[in-house]
Computed example of a mutant assay.
Amino acid sequence: MFTMPEYHGKGHAKTILNKLENWVKEEKDSVSILETGFMQKDAIHLYKKVGYEVTENFEQYIGVENSICIKKRIIF
């Protein structure tokens, strides 16, 4: 996901993330795994702030040096 700089700090990214997590619940899944680039410091900060933790890269991101995967257990 990406938010334009003029929308930073206004809660839009968190709203999108909440909708994603609700979708995970609707699908009866228990884990949300996201991928971002290691230079996306704001994204990584947001994800960690709401409970995501860095995990091993999965599938197409294995071996991609500038990729970070981050996951969160979703409770429903």
Rank of each mutant, 00 (worst) to 15 (best):
Met1Ala: 14
Met4Gln: 13
His8Val: 09
Gly11Leu: 08
Ala13Asn: 07
Ala13Tyr: 00
Lys14His: 12
Thr15Glu: 15
Thr15Tyr: 12
Thr15Ala: 14
Thr15Pro: 02
Leu17His: 00
Lys19Val: 08
Leu20Gly: 08
Leu20Ser: 09
Asn22Trp: 04
Val24Glu: 01
Lys25Asn: 07
Glu27His: 09
Lys28Asp: 12
Lys28Met: 07
Lys28Val: 05
Asp29Glu: 15
Asp29Pro: 00
Ser30Arg: 05
Ser32Met: 04
Leu34Lys: 06
Gly37Lys: 05
Met39Asp: 15
Gln40Phe: 11
Gln40Lys: 11
Lys41Glu: 15
Lys41Ile: 14
Lys41Ser: 13
Asp42His: 08
Asp42Cys: 08
Ala43Val: 08
His45Leu: 13
His45Thr: 15
His45Pro: 02
Lys48Trp: 06
Lys48Arg: 12
Lys49Leu: 12
Val50Ser: 07
Tyr52Ile: 06
Glu53Asn: 14
Glu53Ala: 14
Val54Met: 10
Thr55Lys: 07
Thr55Asn: 06
Phe58Leu: 06
Tyr61Cys: 01
Ile62Gly: 01
Ile62His: 02
Ile62Met: 05
Val64Lys: 06
Val64His: 00
Glu65Lys: 13
Asn66Ile: 12
Ser67Asn: 00
Ile68Phe: 00
Ile70Thr: 08
Ile70Ala: 01
Arg73Met: 11
Ile75Thr: 12
Phe76Lys: 11
